[in-house]
Amino acid sequence: MKLKDDFFKILNINKYSDKIEYTVQLDAAHPIYRYHFPENPVTPGVCIIQTVKELVAENVDSGLFLQKIARIRYFRVINPVDNPIISVSLDISDVEGGYNVAATVFSGETVFSQLSLLFIITN
């Protein structure tokens, strides 16, 4: 599944010395929200993982496989109607054969989720 330019689109990118910060817009009319959940749209936790994966892929020249979730914490659910615009900050560090990624999904002072992931280079 590819979510970029469908489920979400990138509005803005800010690169800092230690992180990259994306501003993305969620499409509350996306079919996924008809089913998750009926009349109660909530961004699926797994779609947040996939969004982070696709944003990491924007920064590397290889395919990625999510081999390990060290930890993900979902503090608050994202309702795409109430919070259509969210920020995702990425701290990507090289490890042998892949990348460690620390990501935070937030809006202003509100932190929705924090992810610590290991991706392996697939090609």
Binding site: G45, K68, I69, R71, Y74
Partner: peptide, 16 residues
Amino acid sequence: KLGFIGEIKNLFIERC
């Protein structure tokens, strides 16, 4: 009930 993932820890994917 509605269930939400609160946390995922040490989850390994061996292959798809």
